[in-house]
Amino acid sequence: AEDTGVRVELAEEDHGRKSTIALRLWVEDPKKLKGKPKDNGAIEFTFDLERETPDDVAQEMIESGFFHESDVKIVAKSIRDRVALIQWRRERIRPALQ
């Protein structure tokens, strides 16, 4: 995935059984953002793979004051890339779960 300066990782082990996953997001390279992020904290949140979109979560982070509104796309992309990787991995392990 493209290096957006915003890192998103699983906050818990993914067994591929729940639609909701816990993710953790933090800024690795503030220079890649247009605005100044709130601080150097890691933001943990849950994401429903079936019902939510990365754009929704990114918008809520902007509204909660974590990022400047000009960075909504870069935050959404960072989440989208990680979610895509999780879904790709789930597709691969699905036969083993059945």
Partner: peptide, 27 residues
């Protein structure tokens, strides 16, 4: 505690914790 919790009006909960130094990229 060093954890901060922010709840968005839509109901989503964000829990903020310090990032370990080892996870931050050196610039």
């Amino acid at each position: 505690s060093s954890l901060t919790q922010v709840v968005h009006s839509a109901g989503r909960r964000f829990i903020v914790s310090p990032v370990p130094e080892s996870r931050l990229r050196e610039s």
